[in-house]
């Protein structure tokens, strides 16, 4: 009986084990190996170039741009999506009726393909669109939305916030629901109202949910690809050149597989370090609320 269980466990787990060997372990070593070569995806020959790819990457404008663009997105997107989803979850939580109708409605953007959303955004912002005609006629504003180094990243941040706000607000709403009404009643007796109630009670008690959402949002920034790929191609002037765009361009447009792998490794290290720093910062914030 015992022996049978042992075999059965390995048997049931085998799809995962086989998959992991082929699609995790081998590629992991493959990436390390490739990053020290100058292979171009096609030719049968390649050389070991040592750390040359890494040195070249650190100096290249594309990689530098990816590094800073990611933090720029983080500074715009993370507060935007946090505040947005917090507002939505506060709304949902205080609605006496039709709660689930609204939360389903707010969740719908999460189902959209980034490509389809990009079609819509490109249309709304096109030269002759209702919005731009109105801006030109009424305010004499002629805005080249996606051609602006400031607006293009902002638009992409708004698109991604739109997509994830409803999803994140579900996490926050379940956090809000776990706060008992008694706490508020006690606070009301002490005379706490409005903003004081929010900052002294709701936010501290919501901390675990906020922690989750912030980590998810920060991690998401490192994976931005679809929207800049179809809308801006990383431009104008590298202003939306994310890590994934840079890796894609180097490895698959310019066929520098070795160089692209080196960038991917740098990206992973940067991602890892950033997430750790953000976690530490969040934990400090949590400690101020008395969470361990």
């Amino acid at each position: 009986m015992k022996k049978g269980q042992e075999k059965l466990g390995w048997l049931f787990a085998s799809p995962y084990l086989v998959y992991s060997l082929i699609f995790f372990v081998i590629p992991l070593f493959g990436a390390l190996f490739l990053s020290f070569t100058n292979w171009n995806l096609i030719s049968p020959q390649y050389e070991n170039v040592g750390f040359l790819n890494f040195i070249k990457a650190v100096k290249s404008p594309g990689v530098k741009a990816a590094f800073f663009v990611t933090y720029k997105f983080m500074i715009i997107f993370v507060p935007m999506v946090l505040i947005g989803s917090l507002v939505i979850s506060l709304i949902i939580n205080s609605l006496p009726r039709f709660k689930s109708f609204f939360s389903v409605g707010y969740f719908l953007p999460y189902l959209a393909s980034g490509v389809a959303t990009s079609v819509v955004v490109k249309g709304i912002l096109s030269y002759n669109s209702a919005l731009n005609v109105w801006l030109r006629n009424t305010w004499h504003l002629n805005i080249d939305w996606l051609g602006s180094q400031i607006l293009a990243p902002l638009i992409i941040a708004v698109m991604i916030s739109w997509k994830f706000m409803g999803y994140y607000s579900l996490i926050l709403t379940s956090g809000l629901e776990s706060i008992s009404g008694e706490v508020y009643e006690a606070a009301a007796i002490d005379g706490a109202t409005g903003w004081i109630k929010f900052f002294k009670i709701t936010l501290p008690l919501l901390y675990p949910a906020m922690f989750t959402v912030t980590i998810l949002a920060v991690g998401l920034v490192f994976g931005i690809f679809t929207e800049p790929y179809v809308l801006t191609g990383g431009g104008p002037g590298f202003s939306t050149n994310t890590w994934q765009i840079e890796i894609y361009n180097q490895a698959f447009s310019k066929l520098n597989a070795g160089y692209g792998s080196a960038i991917a490794i740098i990206d992973s290290v940067v991602t890892f370090v950033t997430i750790i720093i953000v976690r530490k910062l969040l934990e400090i914030w949590g400690k101020s609320y008395g969470w361990e």
Binding site: P27, L28, I247, A251, G260, S261, I265, D267, S268, F272
Partner: peptide, 9 residues
């Protein structure tokens, strides 16, 4: 683990 590292290989 950042899966981007695995893309090219």
């Amino acid at each position: 683990y950042p899966s981007i590292i695995l893309l090219i290989p």
